[in-house]
Amino acid sequence: MQNEFVEARKSEFEELKQYIDTVKNSQGILMQTLQKAQDIFGYLPLEVQQFIADETNIPLADIYGVVTFYTQFTVEEKGKHKIGVCLGTACYVKGSQEIMDKLSEELNIKVGTTTDDKMFTLEATRCLGCCGLAPVMIIDEDVYPKMEAKRVPEILKKYSN
């Protein structure tokens, strides 16, 4: 099965193959392999899942089952910047829902989706464990502690190009 995606991403598939070869003989490698694949490709389209199935002899159905079970794995391409708002209890009682609503309004997208220009993906994250800084928003690797809804527009501007 050759398609455009496989052609365009040849070197990435090569990298993934090298990784699989190093772990092939151990038990229970699927989770690690998927995590590695997502690191490399950014997401797990069917082509990547098929490739892992071929290389590891794990049925594609099982792989698809695992990919769709865990929230961290995604089969859709994400935006350039990932915005996460913590909806853990500590952040929630301190008003993180308002921040989420404001982001959703500013970006004009629903939670869990990506803007049409593929710039931003908005997600609700599970507890990030820095509850002392609640409410917390995270964009890519940058953490915004003690966040307020009114700061949303100004912060988004920084990432808009």
Binding site: Q27, G28, I29, L30, M31, Q32, L34, Q35, I58, D62, G65, V66, F69, Y70, T71, Q72, F73, R126
Partner: peptide, 22 residues
């Protein structure tokens, strides 16, 4: 072994399934 964002994997039998790659 790294989890992948499933709360139920904190339960011991689910956790073992996850380590096994399921």
């Amino acid at each position: 072994r790294l989890g992948a964002g499933a709360f139920v994997c904190g339960e011991e039998t689910a956790l073992m399934q996850s380590i096994e790659g399921k």
